[in-house]
């Protein structure tokens, strides 16, 4: 009887949280799902059901497919650049914990994460400027030829990856540092006694032991990579003829379809595709890293 009462109390206590979660998190997803199978122009009251027509049209839409490919390249590029760099940087900072500059190292790596995105992107836009940018000036001074960072389709994508990674790095390093600080020191002492070098300890102990952290950081980085928008917008698709090749990404395409082309149902279908991709990738990452973790 007492257990039943406790159970009922627990359910009642959790109910408000569940209700808020359902209202704030699940409600919009269900609503988007509903809109994705309708034809709605944002301002009309009529929202006819059109089945999967929006999805069928999406996969024949060259702009959507371009946006999908660009977004995927950016998301995976950011993840591939950020994860190893963050792990190495965190390892170095952790190794230098006793240094009086330890705080400075941590702060300087974390600052890009808290800097407001738009001014940061503007600064990077200047860095990548083909005519006036310091990056090309450096390349020329080293004997290279200047590059059209923001105009060449591939280089424009690379520039966005660099900007996103620069921003994501601080957070990833911070999480890895927490991971490093929680690693058992006894394992490292044993490795040192066995004659393992620092690099060997990092390769064969730190990396496997940090797998849960890597899973978390890679999921967060990948998901935020798929939601890239402001970086692409400021860096390469400003208004009024600002020099820069427009790098079409999914969120930009969605916004254009919803609020400029007034095709909310179509934009909702794009959002559902994005959700599905992120869910599949997150599931795959969990499965991959857990599987390997269990096999050890």
């Amino acid at each position: 009887m007492l257990r039943r009462r406790r159970f009922r109390f627990a359910i009642l206590a959790l109910l408000p949280t569940f209700a808020i979660f359902a209202w704030v998190r699940m409600g919009p997803i269900v609503q988007t799902m509903n809109l994705s199978v309708r034809d709605w122009d944002l301002i009309g009251t009529n929202r006819p059901f059109i089945g999967l027509a929006n999805f069928v049209e999406l996969f024949g839409d060259s702009l959507f497919l371009t946006a999908l490919v660009n977004t995927a390249i950016i998301a995976f590029g950011v993840m591939l650049l950020t994860i190893p760099t963050a792990m190495v940087l965190a390892g170095l900072i952790h190794y230098r914990t006793r240094s009086r500059f330890a705080g400075f190292y941590e702060t300087s790596v974390f600052i890009p994460h808290v800097v407001s995105l738009v001014p940061a992107a503007m600064a990077w836009k200047w860095i990548f400027d083909a005519k006036l940018g310091p990056l090309n000036a450096l390349i020329v001074s080293l004997g290279g030829s200047p590059q059209s960072w923001l105009f060449d389709p591939n280089l424009a994508l690379f520039s966005i990856i660099v900007l996103c990674s620069w921003q994501a790095l601080g957070y990833a390093v911070l999480i890895y540092l927490v991971g490093f600080r929680n690693l058992p020191t006894s394992v490292y002492e044993a490795a040192r006694l066995d004659g393992a070098s620092g690099i060997q300890a990092f390769r064969f102990l730190s990396i496997p032991l940090l797998k849960p952290i890597t899973l978390y950081v890679s999921v967060v980085t990948l998901v935020s990579g798929f939601n890239v928008y402001a970086q692409a917008f400021v860096l390469a698709s400003d208004s009024q003829g600002a020099p820069g090749r427009q790098v079409r990404v999914l969120v930009l395409d969605m916004l254009e379809n919803a609020f400029r082309n007034y095709r909310v149902g179509y934009a909702a279908a794009e959002a559902m595709v994005l959700l599905l991709i992120v869910l599949i990738l997150t599931g795959a990452q969990f499965a991959l890293l857990r599987e390997k973790g269990n096999s050890k």
Partner: peptide, 13 residues
């Protein structure tokens, strides 16, 4: 000439 930047303006020019 308008060769880059915000998309719609390219077509308008």
């Amino acid at each position: 000439l308008r060769l880059s930047g915000g998309s719609q303006g390219i077509a308008e020019k």
